[in-house]
Amino acid sequence: MNNEEIKQFILDHVAEAECMEGSQFLQVTIPAEKILSLASELKANPNTSFDYLFCLTAVDRPDHMEVVYHLKSTTHNHQFVLKAKINTRENPEIETVCHIWRTAELHEREAYDLFGIKFLNHPDLRRLLLTDDWEGWPMRKDYDDPINMIAY
């Protein structure tokens, strides 16, 4: 499928998806609630079969939180970027995708650790890189640690 077809496919499933032709990949932004249904469809549908999640990360935007999924299909060799927009920035929650792409398990734990995004139904959501008693979510833009952080 080319970008246009992927776009159409997603719009068929999630009507409110916003698509944008990026410099490299097609970027699709959807509301966070839709992620689970769309993700399973993208993986299962033989026309798309996005079976390879090569990057999962989170971005802290001023007014919302974003989880970014870089997807690729190893059979069709097409790829695109899926972004799930979480509007509750202070206490973000989103469904996990780690039973669809198993690599997500560690990546989601990392995102939880650094951004504080709660992945619902994640089998083992704990701090990954930081110590268990760490306070705050260091990769958020408003995180402040006057002792350890070097001011520029």
Partner: peptide
């Protein structure tokens, strides 16, 4: 604004 490194070891370790 945001920079993410997708490191191979991280994913390999998950398996």
């Amino acid at each position: 604004y945001r920079l993410k490194f997708r490191s191979p070891g991280f994913s390999n370790l998950s398996a």
